[in-house]
Design a protein around this nucleic acid. Structure first.
Length: 425
RNA sequence: GGAGAGAUGGCUGAGUGGUCAAAAGCGCUCGCCUCGAAAGCGAGUGGGCGGGCAACCGCCCCGUGAGUUCGAAUCUCACUCUCUCCGCCA
C-alpha cells in the first residue's frame, strides 16, 4: 500500500508508475476524487465535534455547581444527529479509499526496466554451463516414476491433479533438501529459523498483498477466516504485524520451511506434467526486515544467498531482472533465479527475490525505532525463495541423470541422504 | 466443547458516565551533579488524520465492531484473543 499523502502530492509519479506497469489509471482518479471528498466532509464534521466537545465541557461545569444545563443539552441533541449523518458519509468514503488504495500496486524502483511482460525481463548473469548430454536425457517425471521415487497417478487418486507423492529416496530427498537449505541459511548466512503456521487469517493475507486482489490464487478453509499459505512469506512477514521493532535489532532475517498451497487458477493446461506446477509444494523462504536505506544492498545479498544453494548443488542458472510489466503487484524490484531444465530446454524459475520497500510494512503496520526516543518509521521488507524444493528436485533429477537412469547425488547432499552417492533402481 | 477471569501508552499498572491522552512506576531522551560512570535531582517523552506559509489549532484512538447518551476507557450487545479449571484429543 502506498502512503495516501504521497499519492495526493505525487499523483503524477503514481500515474506514471501505473502506465509503466501497463495498468489503467481509473482507480487512481477515483482515489484522488474520494480523498478530496473525504477532506471536505472531515472539515465540516470536525467543526461540529469541536462545538459538541465545548458544550460537553460546559455541561460538566454547570452540573458540578448544580446549575441547570438542559438548554445546552437540548441544543446538542440536534448537533449530535448532524454529526452521526456526517460520520456515516465519512465512513463510506473512507471504505472506498482504503479499497482503492489496497488495489494500487507498488511503484517500481528506477532501476527496473520498463516492459510489457516477461518477454522484456532483462538477463543479469549466468552461472554454470547447461550439460551437453552424450545420451538422450529424460524428463524428471519419467526418471522419477522409473526410479519409483515419484508417483503422480496415486496422488491424483487420493487427491487430484497437480499433486505428487514422493516415495522412498524421493521422500528422503525432500527431507534432505529442506534440511540442507535450512542449515546453510542459518549457519552460513545468518538467518534465524522459524516454523510458522501453515494457515493464516485474512488480515495476514492483506498485510503481504495477496488479498484483496488475488483471492482466486489461494485455498480458503470453508466457513473459516483461514487460508492455506501460498508461501512462508505470509506468516513470517506478518509475525511482526502491528509491532515496532527495536532499530538495534535490524536487520531481522528469518528462514522458514513451509508447504505452500496455490490454486493455480489461471494456469490451466500449463506445466501439466511433473513437479513444476503443483497445488502443494515445499519451499524454504528467506524473509528480511531492514532499514530503508539498506534495502537495495540487502536485496543483492538475498539473491546471493539464494544463488549459493544452486551453486553448491551444481545446478546451472541465470538471474533475470523483472521488468515493470512482470515485477508483481507488491514488489518495487524483483529478481528471478532460473535453473536450467533439460526437459524444457530452457531456464525455469526456481526463486523469486523481491524488495517491497515499505509497501508491505505499511499494509501490515511494521515499524522500527531508528534510535531510542526517535519517531518510528516503516521498515522495508524483502523475501526470496531459497529455494522451491519441488523444482529443485526436478532440476536435480534432470541435470544429474546418468545413462542408466540413476541420479548422482551432489556431495553436500550426501550426508543428508545417509551417505548415498546415487539414486538407482 | 463447558465454567470463570481478563484485554488500557515501549513495558508494568490505576482509572467504573463529564477538562482522562489517561495517575504512578519502569524504560527512554536532554540537562544538573561527577575526572568519568552509577545513584540522586530537574525537564521532556504515544499514534493517526485534517487545517495553516508558520507559530499553532482542531478531530479521532483505552482488543475489534455495533449500540445507549447532550457526553463513553467507564453502561449494553456481538465478536476476537489471552489466562485458569473441567472434558476430549495427536
Amino acid at each position: 500500500m502506498l502512503d495516501l499523502k504521497f499519492v495526493r502530492s505525487n499523483s503524477d509519479v503514481v500515474r506514471d508508475s501505473l502506465i509503466r506497469r501497463g495498468e489503467g489509471t481509473d482507480a487512481l482518479d477515483a482515489l484522488l476524487a474520494a480523498d478530496e471528498k473525504r477532506r471536505e466532509i472531515l472539515v465540516e464534521v470536525e467543526e461540529l465535534k469541536r462545538r459538541r466537545n465545548q458544550a460537553s465541557e460546559k455541561v460538566a461545569r454547570l452540573k458540578r455547581t448544580g446549575a441547570d444545563a438542559s438548554e445546552i443539552i437540548d441544543e446538542m441533541k440536534g448537533v449530535s444527529d448532524h454529526i452521526r449523518g456526517f460520520d456515516e458519509e465519512l465512513a463510506a468514503v473512507e471504505t472506498s479509499i482504503s479499497e482503492l488504495l489496497l488495489g494500487i500496486p507498488n511503484i517500481p524502483h528506477e532501476s527496473v526496466p520498463t516492459g510489457r511482460d516477461d518477454s522484456e525481463n532483462v538477463e543479469v548473469r549466468r552461472w554454470g554451463q547447461p550439460r551437453a548430454f552424450e545420451f538422450e536425457p529424460k524428463a524428471h517425471w519419467d526418471l522419477g516414476v522409473a526410479l519409483d521415487i515419484l508417483d503422480f497417478e496415486r496422488a491424483s487418486k487420493i487427491t487430484g491433479a497437480r499433486f505428487a507423492i514422493y516415495k522412498g529416496m524421493g521422500s528422503r530427498l525432500v527431507r534432505a533438501l529442506v534440511n540442507f537449505m535450512l542449515d546453510l541459511h542459518t549457519a552460513e548466512h545468518g538467518y534465524t529459523e522459524v516454523f510458522p503456521p501453515f494457515l493464516v487469517n485474512a488480515a495476514s493475507m492483506v498485510g503481504t498483498g495477496q488479498l484483496p486482489k488475488f483471492a482466486d490464487d489461494m485455498f480458503k478453509c470453508e466457513g473459516l477466516d483461514y487460508y492455506m499459505v501460498p508461501t512462508a512469506e505470509v506468516p513470517v512477514t506478518n509475525m511482526y504485524r502491528g509491532e515496532i521493532l527495536d532499530g538495534a535489532c535490524l536487520p531481522v532475517k528469518h528462514v522458514a520451511y513451509t508447504a505452500c498451497f496455490r490454486a493455480e487458477a489461471g494456469a490451466a493446461g500449463r506445466d501439466t506434467r511433473g513437479l513444476i506446477r503443483q497445488h502443494q509444494f515445499d519451499k524454504v523462504e528467506l524473509v528480511k526486515f531492514v532499514r530503508p536505506d539498506t534495502s537495495y544492498d540487502e536485496l543483492e545479498r538475498l539473491v546471493a544467498d539464494a544463488q549459493s544453494v544452486l551453486e553448491i548443488l551444481g545446478l546451472p542458472y541465470r538471474v533475470t531482472k523483472m521488468c515493470t510489466g512482470d515485477v508483481g503487484f507488491s514488489a518495487a524490484k524483483k529478481y528471478d533465479l532460473e535453473v536450467w531444465m533439460p526437459s524444457y530446454g530452457r531456464y525455469v524459475e526456481i526463486s523469486s527475490c523481491s524488495n517491497f520497500e515499505s509497501f508491505q510494512a505499511r499494509r501490515a503496520d511494521i515499524k522500527f525505532r531508528p534510535a531510542p526516543g526517535a519517531k518510528a518509521e516503516f521498515v522495508h521488507t524483502l523475501n526470496g525463495s531459497g529455494l522451491a524444493v519441488g523444482r529443485t528436485i526436478a532440476a536435480l533429477l534432470e541435470n544429474c541423470q546418468q545413462p542408466d537412469g540413476s541420479i548422482a547425488i551432489a556431495k553436500r547432499l550426501q550426508p543428508y541422504m545417509g551417505g548415498l552417492e546415487a539414486i538407482a533402481i
